[in-house]
């Protein structure tokens, strides 16, 4: 009698699979770099569409709980260990959601970095302007969620300095990175302001190679590898949660080390 009034059960995995299929199309780049983002899709499919109890929902709420615990555990003054030059892993592993030869080819002369959201100065940056900024070098351990780790040497701009330079609202909750390999991820502001968080343009003494994220990546030694976006094309400061590529499939969002 009452069965017909019940909300039909909708399988989240089907929605996500469908979303992933759609994102494979050439419109993916537009979709990713536009305001909608993958995060709002997650929120829709994760919270509003699915009804009743499911293991998936329980696990997602535990993952959200773990985000909050990790934000509390995060000490903004605690530095990731740094290593001597001799400890650098050579060759450094390549890892992405596509094979190495599918990494985007970006013309440095044509490139510009877009700044959007809660910032005073939204002027796009050319690569030349970015390379002229003060730089520092770190030799830190990159830890992958898969379990491997490798020590690398990264050089670039302190991200907190960059945020100050663009007049970012430092009381905003998130910084979102939209990338030219159609990747997206977002991080919390305290991690964005951590002294070792770096907008990286050089790797192991040379210009950041294509496979490691040319023209720039964000190096965060206090987070897992997948939270270190490569080929960044747009940085957004804001209070809207945009999630991320792997986060949509179940990786923990905060993923702090």
């Amino acid at each position: 009698m009452f069965a017909k009034f019940r909300t039909p059960h909708i399988d989240t995995s089907v929605i996500l699979k469908e979303a992933a299929r759609r994102l494979d199309s050439p419109t993916r780049r537009v979709f990713m770099r536009n305001a909608i983002g993958l995060g709002s899709l997650t929120l829709l499919s994760g919270c509003d569409v699915v009804d009743g109890f499911s293991a998936e929902r329980m696990l997602q709420s535990m993952s959200d709980f773990n985000d909050r615990v990790q934000a509390l555990l995060f000490d903004p003054n605690k530095l990731a260990p740094e290593y001597p030059e001799s400890a650098v892993t050579r060759p450094f592993p390549f890892n992405a959601f596509y094979p190495e030869d599918k990494a985007p080819v970006i013309d440095p002369g044509d490139f510009h970095l877009d700044i959007t959201g809660l910032t005073e100065n939204q002027k796009p940056w050319t690569l030349e302007e970015l390379h002229a900024l003060p730089r520092f070098t770190q030799i830190t351990r990159h830890i992958c969620i898969e379990g491997w780790s490798a020590i690398g040497k990264w050089t670039g701009v302190r991200f907190s300095d960059f945020l100050a330079r663009i007049g970012a609202d430092l009381s905003a909750i998130y910084v979102t990175f939209r990338c030219d390999d159609n990747y997206i991820t977002s991080i919390d502001m305290p991690t964005a302001l951590h002294p070792q968080t770096q907008l990286t343009f050089w790797f192991d003494g040379e210009v950041l190679p294509r496979k490691y994220g040319f023209p720039m990546k964000l190096r965060i030694p206090t987070k897992l590898g997948f939270k270190n976006p490569k080929h960044i094309g747009e940085i957004e400061i804001g209070n809207d949660f945009n999630g991320g590529y792997w986060e949509t499939y179940g990786y923990n969002w905060f993923s702090g080390l």
Partner: peptide, 10 residues
């Protein structure tokens, strides 16, 4: 991996 880490961290 994604589902397994969710179970592990729960």
């Amino acid at each position: 991996l994604g589902g397994a880490t969710q179970w592990h961290f729960a």
